[in-house]
Design a protein around this nucleic acid. Sequence first.
DNA 1: GCGAAAGCGGACGAATCAGTCCGCTTCTGC
DNA 2: GCAGAAGCGGACTGATTCGTCCGCTTTCGC
Lengths: 180, 180
Amino acid sequence: MTVLRADAQRNLDRILEAAAEAFAELGPDCAIDEIARRAGVGHGTVFRRFPTKEALRAAVIRLHLHELLARAREFAAYEDAGRGFEDFVWYAAEVCRRDRALFEGVEKCTFDDVAAAKQELHDVVNKLIRRARRDGAIRRELDAQDVGALVGAAIEATMHAERPDAWRRYVRVLLDGLRP
Amino acid sequence: MTVLRADAQRNLDRILEAAAEAFAELGPDCAIDEIARRAGVGHGTVFRRFPTKEALRAAVIRLHLHELLARAREFAAYEDAGRGFEDFVWYAAEVCRRDRALFEGVEKCTFDDVAAAKQELHDVVNKLIRRARRDGAIRRELDAQDVGALVGAAIEATMHAERPDAWRRYVRVLLDGLRP
DNA sequence: GCGAAAGCGGACGAATCAGTCCGCTTCTGC
DNA sequence: GCAGAAGCGGACTGATTCGTCCGCTTTCGC
């Protein structure tokens, strides 16, 4: 990939920023025209950089997923496995709450590198869960997939809630329910 | 409203049935053409009975909501409030598991009578929850909306799970988490 | 500055889907 | 049976939105 012209780079940055904002606010089905408008460019310009809407979505998800992965690794390195797991759940909930598109978008996205990052994140989270379970912080009958599904569900629930502080109560309910 | 001609009534029944099925399967944004196809009628026929897609959605939701309301009243009449509440959650989980559109659809629907039925259900569930809370079966800080969101989330979680019996474990985790 | 390459963005095409309309068909009361 | 009312459904309209294209503009090495 050759270096972009200065104006093109400026526009690319603005598009990514606007896209992240618009997806977070309006969800992954948000119209390209809306993103172009927010970025202050024509929508043809968006399509030049990203051949499809899916590609733009993937680009935004990629950024967020790498951030999430880095943080998950930190939590996995905690001495206290139960604490590391809980802190990760709180962090993940917070991220998804701010950006409802991330959670939905990751599911939808079929790009190879995003799938790879997703798998990598999955592995790290699995490790977090296995350690927490060994330490008696999570019930024995639940496996990593169950816990992942339940955490995802609690986050999903916070999106429907009206009261802005609801998500804390939901995560608390979940964490309490997960204990043996 | 005058009585319908026999063929019209037959078609109306088929449309409602197909709509319930299609919404359950494909979600509340499912295309009218798909519903018409499943019902074996032209989509003009659907629009004759229901002036908008919203009206059709409301009609389907109405049926399900009344059923749910009747059952909720039964559970609310239980001697043992905690037991009544838990049984209701198990029942609601089962219903939502069969029809994922119901939960989403109710949120979207803005028709007055549906809103009224929703409010009525809300009141009964609130009563269930208040009684269960008084009996010490549910934490004090959760209201009906919270519990609804959490039950919905647990059901949502079961859809991502591979093992078919997962939903029972998830509801169990939820109910344990709800306790003080 | 200048010319070529890179980039821009609005007009356009195509697909999808809600909702309308009207010529033809089917039912029903008599 | 028949006449007229009721109903049917497919063609059509209009809105929305993804994605393309090409004439004009901007940048940048020289």
